[in-house]
């Protein structure tokens, strides 16, 4: 039986706090890309140009049904083959942003489809432009039902950032593995990583559900 060494925990704490910051940065950066990209992907699927609609639809399916880990490797290693060298951070953010962008586009699609047809017809009858219809009529109504899905994927992207460690992004998992290699101690580093993830994702999930309820209340959409 192996004993738990508290002194190692205190020794490692500063490094892990730093790494946790980077994990949050990766999650935040990836999510920002995903939020915008998801919107582009969903709008591209709603054009009347069928080849584009079809291509984007298949692209989203491809991204959603293949492992993120593989996509991370793909983005990181494919660039250099064509002379474009990406840093681990850039490649990691692109891969994770792309992956979650595909997921978010489905969330947005659900939101947009939940807007009653009459709203579109009314916007058309009032001669609103497409941009105005989306900005003022559709998106404000499509957003509340999408919040729960968006929140889930925010927590999801946070929990998937350890996959960036494989290309050398120095987030939590990478740090824990490095500590293990230096000190031959695996118990404390990996347990600490797990504890940090729990300590962030549980309150985050709780806050998101509170936020969702608050939005529903403020918009007068109480269930």
């Amino acid at each position: 039986m192996i004993e738990w060494r508290w002194h190692l925990v205190w020794e490692l704490a500063p490094r892990f706090v730093d790494a946790a910051g980077k994990t949050l940065l990766a999650a935040g950066g990836g999510y920002s890309i995903a939020v915008v990209l998801g919107l582009v992907l969903v709008l591209a699927q709603r054009t009347r140009f069928h080849p584009l609609t079809f291509a984007v639809r298949e692209f989203v399916e491809l991204i959603r049904s293949t492992p993120l880990l593989l996509q991370v490797f793909f983005v990181f290693y494919v660039g250099p083959q064509f002379g474009l060298v990406l840093s681990p951070w850039t490649a990691g953010l692109i891969a994770i942003g792309l992956h979650y962008g595909a997921y978010l586009s489905e969330v947005y699609r659900g939101g947009i489809e939940s807007v009653p047809a009459g709203q579109w017809e009314a916007a058309k009858a009032l001669n609103l432009s497409v941009v105005r219809t989306y900005r003022r009529i559709v998106i404000p109504q499509a957003l509340p039902p999408a919040i729960s899905g968006m929140g889930n994927y925010l927590v999801g992207i946070f929990k998937d950032t350890p996959m960036l460690s494989v290309i050398g992004v120095t987030e939590l998992m990478h740090t824990a593995t490095a500590v293990g290699a230096e000190s031959y101690r695996y118990l404390e580093p990996y347990t600490m990583v797990g504890a940090i993830f729990l300590a962030i994702s549980l309150p985050a999930a709780y806050l998101i559900s509170r936020f969702e309820k608050w939005v529903r209340r403020t918009l007068g959409m109480v269930k």
Partner: peptide, 24 residues
């Protein structure tokens, strides 16, 4: 459920593979 959903699959995999052997 909260532990397994609240942490990453990769963390769990490494924990099971690298830490459990320490407990025999």
């Amino acid at each position: 459920i909260e532990i397994f959903r609240g942490t990453s699959l990769l963390v769990q995999l490494f924990w099971i593979f690298f830490v459990l052997p320490l407990f025999g």
